[in-house]
Structures are given as C-alpha cells and as structure tokens.
C-alpha cells in the first residue's frame, strides 16, 4: 500500500499548493504536509466544529482574500488542500479524483489489518 506522502505527491507538487491535511470525520488530523513551515501547529486548534460545518458537502471551494482552500469528502474523512489564489483548481480537482480511490483502499487495507489482528489474538 502507498504511503500518504506518495499518494499526495502530485497535489503537493502543483505550483501554488501550500499544503494538505486529511481530517477524520471526528475532526482529528490523520495526515498533514506543508510545503513551507506553518506558524502554528494545526493540532493546536479544535477542528471539530469546522469539520461539522462540512457535513453534507461533497466538495467545497473556499476563496479567501489571500488564498484558497479546496475540500473534498473521502471515505475516511475530508481532504483539505491549501493553495494560493492563482492555482488552477481544475488540476487540483483532477488530482483529488485520482487520489480518492486510493484512500478508499487505505481504508479497506486498515479494516483487513484489523481483522488479521483479531484473528491472531484468537
């Protein structure tokens, strides 16, 4: 199974993309990677309400004064891409389309791992 950094390589290497976070549906950070260091650790913020506000959304594009956040719902949580205003979002969207099935596999891989663990315990 691919590791997450490899999985998100193409997105992170799109010009203007600043970072990626993968949140669980409960608001925990599953994965994060930034192109340049961030001032504050995202773990320091309680993301539960933000994640809750995404309920029912399949895809969200947030446009701010100095940047954009593209959010995509996956089977394991929400993929959040931080980027500059000039980034071709169609490209980011396309890369997310490619990545999402792989995230699904990660989920089923985890389930299989869990089953194997239970089997071993027995």
């Amino acid at each position: 199974m691919m590791n997450m950094s490899d999985l998100f390589y193409d997105i992170l290497n799109t010009k203007g993309v600043k970072g990626i976070l993968l949140f669980s549906f409960s608001g925990d950070i599953i994965f994060k990677e930034f192109i340049s260091p961030v001032d504050e650790k995202p773990e320091n913020l309680d993301w539960r309400f933000f994640i809750k506000s995404l309920e029912g959304m399949r895809e969200t594009d947030l446009v701010f004064e100095k940047g954009r956040i593209y959010i995509r719902r996956s089977e394991i949580g929400y993929l959040v891409v931080l980027m500059a205003l000039f980034v071709p979002t169609a490209m980011v969207r396309l890369n997310c389309d490619i990545v999402l099935p792989a995230l699904r596999q990660q989920k089923s891989g985890k389930k299989l791992g869990r089953l194997l663990k239970i089997g071993k315990q027995k």
Partner: peptide, 27 residues
C-alpha cells in the same frame, strides 16, 4: 450564517484573510 463563520475560521488559521465566498457541492 453559523456554517459560514466556521468555514471562515480555517482561512484565519492559515492567514488567508477574510472569506470571500464558498462554493458547495452537496450532490
């Protein structure tokens, strides 16, 4: 309104400034 307030907080955290708009695809 409340949902917009929550969405805008993510931008504040990453120093993206004020939220201008949100595009939502809910299916």
């Amino acid at each position: 309104d409340r949902r917009m307030a929550q969405l805008s907080k993510a931008g504040e955290f990453f120093h993206f400034g004020k939220i201008m708009l949100a595009y939502i695809d809910s299916g």
